[in-house]
Design a protein around this nucleic acid. Structure first.
Lengths: 214, 214
DNA sequence: GTCTATAATTCGATAGAC
DNA sequence: GTCTATCGAATTATAGAC
């Protein structure tokens, strides 16, 4: 086996080796977790050789972070659009909530990956993940709420970080437990993510308290 | 190492074999998941023989459900206390939120178990879990919110199930990601669960919108 | 403790684009 | 010719078996 078999499956078939690798890595990491995932399987999934992985990414760690970073960056674009609607904070928050839940579902594999990571003990990888990748988007949302409060558009007595976590938590719980929600009777919540997101933003924006009371 | 060590660690030392088994099972199931957990390890952890497990519980499935059922029943007691304060719904919701988060943390192993289960595909075990164990407590919270709305104590235009999920979601996210939250700067949220729970209930009760607007 | 299997990472060469 | 994507083979690191 010396020559006569040219390995031309390279630049012709593959739209982009790097993109295929990111997608294959998302699937593999999501299925098996970080340590359970093997570079060989990722390479196989992307239809490239093992060493190609290391041409595109410095290490397994770097590949892992790149997978998440890509999804986070994409959502960052959405944030730019959504959080620029300064006139009506209610509409803005509703739109954020709807887009965020849609993003979780469209990138379900990466989302599961991130959530799993956040649960686990706390290592350096996780710290990098939070500090470099997740934190910027979170801070953007908190920053928007803070500015809206300072501008007098929303109530200023509430902690913007807590409000942000409340919005995110509802989406994450919905995303993680959607199948289970379908079992709860009386509700068709699980059927329509958009209307769930809308309903959550209504709750958080309007509040349970009746106006004029207390 | 054959005799001379009577295995009397059974009914004498042990306050209750069943209780010790539940606790050992919680630890083992939480660490390894349902299928990964071995009955032998649970028995060892409880300091009893393997057959003792099957004396107290019909099957691995039954033991698993019993672990979760116990924690849920305990929280059901709390709900009875908390959701009977009919005068001030704001206080009532704040107290619910605080107790629920405390319950998650006190029963961290079981909580992780449940959350892991809710994520996974959906099998019969999970359906039983939701229908028989979790749903009653959830419905109690939703029922309280619905009654409060009908009694004119809180706003009636919002979906009570969504409000309940919003409260729970914030707590679950906090519980799952507490270590990660500590990395976010500007905030001491991760330090004090009670004040986080309080802040969430403030957000959900009062709402972000300014009163008198719109 | 050594041995072995598996998985991460590195190396050197090749093929095509510009 | 240089540059980059790719590959197969070689080289470590690690974890588990014996």
């Amino acid at each position: 086996m010396s020559e006569a078999i040219p390995v031309d499956i390279r630049d012709t078939d593959n739209p982009d080796g790097r993109a295929r690798l990111l997608s294959a890595a998302a699937a593999e990491f999501s299925r098996r977790g970080f340590s359970g995932a093997s570079i060989a399987a990722i390479a196989r999934g992307a239809g490239v050789g093992k060493s190609t992985v290391f041409h595109h990414f410095e290490s397994k760690d770097a590949l892992y972070l790149a997978v998440i970073r890509e999804a986070a960056a994409e959502f960052g674009q959405t944030l730019n659009t959504v959080l620029s609607i300064t006139e009506d904070p209610g509409r803005c928050i509703a739109e954020f909530q709807r887009r965020h839940l849609a993003h979780l579902q469209r990138n379900a594999e990466v989302a599961r990956l991130v959530l799993r990571e956040l649960q686990e003990p706390f290592d350096e990888r996780c710290e990098t993940l939070v500090r470099d990748v997740l934190s910027p988007n979170f801070r953007r949302l908190v920053g928007y709420l803070k500015e809206a409060a300072e501008a007098g558009l929303i109530r200023s007595s509430l902690d913007p970080a807590v409000a942000a976590l409340t919005l995110l938590g509802a989406n994450v719980l919905y995303f993680q437990s959607r199948a289970a929600l379908a079992v709860l009777p009386d509700q068709d919540l699980a059927d329509d993510p958009d209307s769930f997101a809308r309903a959550v933003s209504d709750v958080v924006f309007q509040g349970l308290a009746k106006r004029g009371k207390q």
